[in-house]
Amino acid sequence: MSDNSSKKPMSEFLSECYAKMHKGNIIVAYKGEINATIIADTLGLIEAKLSDEHVDNQVRKKLYNVLVECLQNLYHHVDIVPGSNDNQGNGTFVLSKTSEGFYIATGNMVKSSKISILKEKIDKINSLSKDELKEFYKFVLNNQTFSEKGGGGLGLIDIARKTGNKLKYSFTPFNDDYSFFYLNVLVSE
């Protein structure tokens, strides 16, 4: 993203970010407010759609689990840009299907001050083997106290563990204080 990104209006900036999230055949795409009702409705919709398709039971369960974590990550971690209006939304996700499996992409604005911590965490997770992830998960489960937001810091570890794939991500600066955080995970089929 070029330096003049900050001069763009937010709607245009987000449209460009969203456009990059599409991959393969889209099953569900959403942008807007992320709340408990939206999450419940989305999960219900996806469950109904998946039962129409011929998806292996094990893959379906894994996908559902990972979706829950991805959507609840959005719910807990979206940062609202001051001055943005509701129509511009504050979170987005796309579930799509390719020959490899199901891609779950999420995007949300985060304070740029959080980037280094988030990046360090994801890079660490991506560097671990299957067994190391299991041990890391158990360590965090047993030792880390709950955050007020309800997240136990386990979401990303769990996503990496269940999918067995690396977490792909990027940060696109919107202005000096906020960036668009994009996360993409593959549930292999």
Binding site: Y64, V68, E69, Q72, F146, G150, G152
Partner: peptide, 12 residues
């Protein structure tokens, strides 16, 4: 059938 990571701490 399913549980999220937020529940996993509570189950513990």
């Amino acid at each position: 059938e399913y549980f999220n990571t937020s529940s996993s701490k509570c189950i513990l």
